[in-house]
Nucleic acid binder design. Structure first.
Lengths: 156, 156
DNA sequence: AGATATAGTCTAGTTGCTTGACTATAGGGA
DNA sequence: TCCCTATAGTCAAGCAACTAGACTATATCT
């Protein structure tokens, strides 16, 4: 029950798009986690929530996860360690490369995916109701376009 | 030079609004920090960037900062410790309350504020160019509206 | 066959937070 | 007026989410 900032005295000059983006993103993450915890997945942290959608059904190497997420392979390893400990994924040898191991979902892990999908849809429906379907779609499209345009700008 | 994820193999099913929001917000934070570091403020971390706009010119108590930001007072204290060490803010006694101390900007701190404002405007201009002014304004408005609607939903 | 790159692991350290325990002052009754 | 409780700030310890460095085993290039 962390105190939120909405309910307090007037904060100064926080009305730029970066703030708006952060607020919205932060709320989404919270809502998502709340739903997952509510569905019984109380081990579901934000960082783990990020890893999971990058693992595909056929399994994925840790190094690939690291590359996809833009994190060090050590970070990935720690997340995978945790997910293995909680029975969500498992490591199996990669038949094509004896150095590598493939991270795959356990049956339990697949149920997490399904729950995550439900949570995602539920939040999207909520947002669409708040804004109206047309404006929600507009917002989504504008964000996707912005992200695509941004895709390869500052880094690289 | 952290690896970004744009440049790698195809990731699965990441096309919901939460992801879009996170991506955009993450990019904004990065762009902001890059500009501040480029302007010579290399101590400028993301967390500190969050604290600074909540301090008003007349000075603000730490407890107020904690409430505004939704963080523990210990967290605020650590940030303020760091900002004091880097000469950005200072702690002065509160004449109205002998328990309290007021956090105010040093002259150096005020120059940071100005630089931050420039960085903010520069990023906004960039985004507006990418999307077109009309669509950018639309996006901003939709985000503000969404945040306001969300303001008091899951927590409290 | 040898040089070099890559997948994963281990160790150790940093940052951004948290809770718990404590001191000093404030403010409201009895 | 004394006491009780709430509040501002601080200190210490600990957890989560990372990072960089060093190492092993295997793969790949020449």
């Amino acid at each position: 029950m962390v105190k939120r900032l909405d309910d307090s005295s007037t904060p100064p000059l926080l009305t730029h798009i970066g703030w708006s983006l952060w607020r919205a993103s932060d709320h989404w993450l919270r809502a998502f986690r709340a739903r997952m915890v509510g569905a019984g997945y109380s081990w579901f942290s934000e960082a783990r929530a990020n890893v999971i959608p990058h693992i595909d059904r056929a399994g994925t190497q840790q190094a690939v996860l690291a590359e996809r997420m833009g994190l060090s392979k050590q970070a990935i390893q720690q997340f995978v360690d945790g997910l293995v400990a909680d029975g969500v994924v498992q490591r199996t040898p990669d038949p094509a490369d004896a150095r590598a191991r493939i991270v795959t979902f356990t049956p339990e892990g697949l149920s997490v995916l399904a729950a995550a999908n439900r949570a995602k849809k539920s939040i999207e429906a909520d947002y669409a109701t708040r804004l109206g379907k047309a404006r929600f779609d507009q917002l989504s499209k504008a964000l996707v376009e912005l992200n695509e345009s941004l895709g390869d700008s500052t880094d690289e």
